[in-house]
Design a protein around this nucleic acid. Structure first.
Length: 497
RNA sequence: GGUAUCGUGGCCGAGUGGCUAGGCUCAGCUCUGCAAAAGCUGCUACAGCGGUUCGAAUCCGCUCGAUACCUCCA
């Protein structure tokens, strides 16, 4: 098994990945709050960690991938107004909370399938784990790190920070957090401003409520992930992922809760993906600049010049390293579309290329170049999942493939094993690990039959030098989004936009 | 205000102190009835100013600029 190095946010450095149980990996990723439609920003973590999951499996690990659904809704942490997002939206849309959750969960799953993300092993919901959350809160109270006030329960950050490195993950200075500089409503319940809620008393009008030892209420924002990750992955597991914006306070609080409840830090490796920005600003509801997935795929949004295929989005995201910000623009997306199309066509050409029977290569330099770029794919994935470089390596092979087909490269230039290696590399990296798919599925055999007929008619026209007729066929097909390509050997292929 | 991160050629973007990242665009050429596709060639950049070094986009310092988190957030 080759050695994987990944950037651990907790220690701010690349570290060799060593699983707790040899051959097995526990992976937890913060899922969406299903109180609204998923947007482009949400696509990034789920595609990023889908590739992480796929790559770990490729390395031979048995991965248990847990990705939650937050269906209980977060509430305003500072208690200005206890507000449950799900409940609030449900009222607005005149839906039962469960109805609303169902609607957006379905849409989210639809988006995940479009992106060709593999399903997680377990997709637990917050509302399905109220008991586990209550148990964990009771445990933390029993250990003296949480206190109840008026039916709500808060975590004692000050006490925790005295013994543990609270703020290490997010680079926070605890003294700054403990300083009360702002007066916030509802703040008086907490002993300290930095404390966070484990359980919140439900006001009378609140629809989502559960019975607890502290009265009717609902769980705090952070406790669900701690309760569910420990239930399915154990008290200490390998990798926890999520967006960088969750580092504080969400993940910091997860660490604190779990450390008290279980006596150990919950996670060995923290991985955080960076944000998608638009005009340099983070895409998010608060900025009013989101592009929903449905809009992205249909092109129905003022900022979109065209519709973008889910695979184009996936490719666009993977062309950038996951820890860099990624700025949205139509130009960037259009460039990605062209690039993916070209790369995929090279892969298709490679698949159709007859396998040479050369035992050795006549062009040793080219042969070596192929071996190097194929090997580099493994090295680059092992270097903190550098998908951008993997894609660049594959692009280096495209001219070789096209050159062999076009005759610019001699048929005996490379060996059979090198050709086979390219085939394996494209299949493994482009399809299995990056999870990319063709932009259009040529599964319509009837359409193909018709096009073959048209191509034959054009061939006949060209044979009798009736170029007016042959060009008319070509132009009309082009207008319909079907592009003909005359190969050097006289064969004709086509691609559909 | 505090804490971080980042500033790369027309655009997007990778980058381990020394070797052409890659993609898109653009220009020229080859092939082609013409195009398209494909191939070849060209476009050598690292915010600014200092410093360390034989050598820095890469390390250090300062300046300027941008963003993120500190409230919900992927």
């Amino acid at each position: 098994m080759s050695t994987l190095y990944l950037y651990n946010s907790y220690n701010r450095q690349k570290e060799e990945f060593v699983p707790i149980t040899p051959g097995h990996v526990g992976l937890y990723v913060c899922g969406p709050t299903v109180s609204g439609e998923s947007h482009l920003g949400h696509a990034r973590p789920y595609i990023t960690f889908d590739v992480v999951n796929r790559y770990l499996q490729h390395l031979g690990y048995k991965v248990r991938y847990v990705r939650n659904i937050t269906d209980a809704g977060h509430f305003e942490e500072e208690g200005r107004e206890a507000e449950d997002k799900v409940a609030k939206k449900a009222l607005l849309e005149m839906l039962e909370p469960m109805e609303l959750v169902h609607k957006y969960t379905s849409l989210y799953h639809w988006g995940m399938r479009k992106f060709n993300n593999l399903e997680p092993s377990i997709e637990p919901t917050a509302t399905g784990h109220i008991i586990e959350q209550i148990n964990m809160i009771e445990d933390i109270i029993a250990k003296g790190f949480a206190y109840e006030v008026n039916g709500s329960v808060y975590f004692d950050v000050k006490k925790y920070a005295a013994q543990y490195p609270y703020g290490k993950l997010s680079g926070r200075v605890i003294d700054d957090l403990l300083e009360t500089t702002r007066e916030l409503e509802g703040q008086e319940e907490k002993r300290d401003r930095a404390d966070f809620a484990l359980w919140k008393k439900a006001p009378p009008e609140h629809i989502m409520r559960w019975k607890s030892p502290w009265g009717e209420g609902f769980p705090g924002w952070h406790i669900e992930c701690s309760a569910m990750s420990s239930k399915y992955l154990g008290q200490r597991f390998d990798i926890h992922g999520g967006g960088m914006d969750l580092q504080f306070p969400h993940h910091e609080s997860e660490i604190a809760q779990s450390t008290i409840a279980h006596g150990c830090a919950p996670v060995n490796y923290w991985i955080h993906n960076n944000m998608i920005t638009i005009d340099g600003k983070k895409m998010g509801k608060a900025y009013n600049n989101v592009i929903k997935l449905t809009e992205l795929f249909s092109g129905d949004h003022p900022m979109l010049e065209q519709a973008y295929h889910p695979m184009v989005i996936r490719f666009y995201i993977l062309q950038t390293h996951y820890r860099s910000t990624l700025d949205f623009s139509n130009d960037a997306l259009k460039a990605s579309e062209k690039a993916l199309r070209r790369l995929w066509e090279a892969y298709e050409v490679l698949q159709k290329l007859p396998l040479t029977d050369n035992a050795s290569a006549s062009d040793a330099e080219l042969e070596q170049k192929i071996l190097d770029f194929c090997q580099a794919c493994a090295d680059d994935m092992n270097d903190d999942f550098n998908t951008a470089k993997v894609i660049a390596n594959l692009f280096e092979l495209a001219p070789v493939i096209n050159g062999i087909k076009g005759g610019q490269i001699r048929a005996d230039a490379i060996s059979q094993s090198a050709q086979q290696l390219m085939l394996d590399t494209f299949h493994t990296y482009l399809e299995s690990i990056l999870g990319l798919q063709p932009l259009q599925q040529n599964d319509d055999s009837k359409l193909d039959s018709v096009l073959q007929l048209v191509i034959e008619m054009r061939r006949e026209a060209r044979a009798r030098k009736d170029y007016a007729a042959s060009d008319k066929i070509r132009d009309m097909l082009a207008a319909a989004g079907i592009q003909l390509k005359d190969e050097k050997d006289g064969a004709v292929s086509y691609s559909i936009d």
